[in-house]
C-alpha cells in the first residue's frame, strides 16, 4: 500500500470523525438508527398493518378484503356473548397461572438466593433452566399423555379413590403453570439476590419475628421482581393457543384468531387488539407497582 492510499483512507476516517466531533445528538442518532429503524418499521409497522385490517371487512361473496373504514368486526365482538366469554376465560386463566407461579416460585427463588450453598445454587439454576432446553410441543404433549384417562396421574391417584383433572380449563391451568414457571423464578431470584443480607440481619436485631421480616422487609423489596415475572407468565398465557388446543376443548383468544385469520382477517385483527389492550393496562399497573425500576 502506498503512503498516499493510507493518507487518503485516513482522511476519510478523519472527516467522518470530524463530522461527529462535538455533535452528541448526531453520535447517538447514528448509533440508534439501526435498532430503532428495526423497532419502528419491522416491529411496530407490521403490528400497525395488522391492526389496520381490523377496520376492513370481508366481502361475503368472493371472500376478498374490502379496504374501506368499517367497525363491523368490533360490532361482532361486542354483540356476540361468546367472544366476551372467551376473553374472560383467557384473562382468568392467565391471572390464575400468574398467581400459582408466583406462589410456587417465591420459596424456590428465596432458597436459591439466600439459603443455598454456592454449589447448590448452581445446580438449582441449571434445574430451573433445563426444561427450557426441550421443545415446547414435547412438554405439552407429555402432559397430554400424563393427563389422559389411563395416564400416569390417574394411575397414581387411583389407590386413593381419586381421579386427576380431565382435559379442560384445569388441565390448561396446570400445564401453563408448569410451562411458564422458570419465567417467574428467574426474575424473583434476581430481585432477592439484590436485597442485602444486612437488611435482614438488621430486622432481626431490631426484634422482628421472621414473619414480620418477611412481611415488612423482604416482600416489599422483592415485590417489583414478582410483578416483573408476572408480566412474563401473564402475557405468555394470554397469547398461547396450542396448549388449550391440546389439553382442552376450550377456545382462548389465540384459537379464535387462528381460526379466523385466513377467512376473516378483519375479525382476527379486531380480536388481536384485545390482548394488546389488556397488556397495556397490565403494564401501566405494573409500572405503578415499580416493576421497571431496576431495568
Amino acid at each position: 500500500m502506498t503512503t498516499e492510499a493510507v493518507a487518503e483512507k485516513r482522511s476519510v476516517g478523519r472527516r467522518l470523525a470530524g463530522l461527529f466531533h462535538g455533535r452528541p445528538r448526531l453520535q447517538v442518532g447514528a448509533l440508534l438508527a439501526g435498532p430503532l429503524g428495526w423497532l419502528v418499521i419491522g416491529y411496530l409497522g407490521s403490528l400497525a398493518l395488522l391492526l389496520v385490517a381490523a377496520f376492513w371487512t370481508v366481502s361475503p361473496l368472493s371472500g376478498e378484503l374490502d379496504k374501506t373504514l368499517s367497525f363491523e368486526s368490533f360490532e361482532i365482538l361486542f354483540d356476540e356473548p361468546v367472544y366476551r366469554d372467551i376473553v374472560v376465560r383467557t384473562v382468568t386463566i392467565a391471572a390464575l397461572v400468574t398467581v400459582t407461579d408466583a406462589v410456587i416460585a417465591f420459596p424456590i427463588a428465596f432458597y436459591m438466593a439466600k439459603i443455598a450453598s454456592r454449589r447448590m445454587k448452581a445446580i438449582l439454576v441449571v434445574a430451573v433452566l433445563l426444561p427450557l432446553w426441550s421443545s415446547y410441543l414435547v412438554k405439552v404433549l407429555s402432559w397430554r399423555t400424563m393427563l389422559s384417562a389411563d395416564g400416569i396421574i390417574n394411575w397414581a391417584l387411583e389407590p386413593f379413590g381419586l381421579t386427576g383433572p380431565e382435559f379442560g380449563n384445569t388441565a390448561v391451568w396446570l400445564v401453563m403453570s408448569y410451562l411458564w414457571l422458570p419465567f417467574m423464578i428467574l426474575p424473583i431470584y434476581a430481585g432477592l439476590e439484590r436485597i442485602p443480607n444486612s437488611l435482614i440481619s438488621a430486622s432481626e436485631d431490631l426484634g422482628a419475628s421472621p414473619l414480620t421480616t418477611f412481611r415488612r422487609v423482604i416482600l416489599p423489596l422483592s415485590f417489583p421482581a414478582v410483578v416483573a415475572g408476572s408480566i412474563f407468565t401473564f402475557s405468555l398465557t394470554l397469547g398461547d393457543y396450542i396448549t388449550p388446543r391440546l389439553v382442552s376443548n376450550n377456545q382462548f383468544i389465540g384459537n379464535v384468531i387462528y381460526n379466523n385469520i385466513s377467512t376473516n382477517l378483519p375479525l382476527a385483527s379486531a380480536l388481536a387488539l384485545v390482548p394488546i389492550v389488556v397488556m397495556i393496562a397490565y403494564l401501566l399497573v405494573a409500572r405503578k407497582l415499580g416493576a421497571f425500576e431496576h431495568i
Binding site: 370481508v58 361475503p60 371472500g63 356476540e80 376450550n250 377456545q251 381460526n259 379466523n260 377467512t263 376473516n264
Partner: peptide
Amino acid sequence: VDYNKWVQAWTTIKG
C-alpha cells in the same frame, strides 16, 4: 348462509 357465517357459528358452538 355463506362460509364466513359458518366460521363465526363454529366459534359460538365451541363456546
